[in-house]
């Protein structure tokens, strides 16, 4: 069993928690748990009709992991690049892309694939391919990330 990495187990456990959160949001609130849609509706004001639900979701999303940080023996870090140009470009692309596509990893990936939605599956294939190509180009060819 040596080949099984602890990170994979934590990934599976965390994944089950993410999926359970999405299941609660669907079965109780009747909504798709898509991070970009929940934020995007507040940003472009199209979702102000249920701002309280959106706000409460985002508050939970920020506060609960913040409260969990002391459980970790070593410092938790996002290890984000210090190159702010890359950070800004990435943020802009993620913001524009998720709104054009109407979803991100949580909406299309978790909620879409699990209901066998063609749109969710196609979106996931394209964002994985694009992410993989960016790694090849920007890490292995240009060496900037």
């Amino acid at each position: 069993m040596d080949f099984i990495q602890p990170d994979w187990i934590w990934g599976l456990v965390g994944g089950l928690m993410i999926g359970t959160a999405a299941a609660i949001f669907l079965l109780f609130n009747g909504r798709i748990m898509g991070a970009s849609g929940i934020v995007g509706g507040l940003v472009d004001r199209s979702g102000l009709g249920n701002w309280a639900e959106r706000g409460a979701f985002l508050a939970g999303l920020v506060v609960v992991p913040a409260l969990m940080l002391p459980l970790y023996a070593t410092e938790v870090s996002t290890n984000i690049t210090s190159n702010l140009g890359i950070v800004i470009a990435g943020g802009l692309l993620v913001g524009i892309g998720t709104r054009l596509a109407n979803g991100c990893t949580s909406g299309h990936g978790v909620c879409g694939i699990s209901r066998f939605s063609l749109r969710g599956i196609v979106a996931t294939v394209f964002y994985l391919l694009a992410g993989g190509l960016v790694m090849v180009l920007f890490r292995h060819v240009l060496g900037v990330i």
Binding site: A89, G97, F126, Y127, A130, G132, M135
Partner: peptide
């Protein structure tokens, strides 16, 4: 859907 997913994936990979 396709263009948005490509742009999103590119930004996701960059950062």
């Amino acid at each position: 859907l396709v263009l948005g997913s490509v742009l999103f994936g590119a930004g996701w990979g960059l950062v």
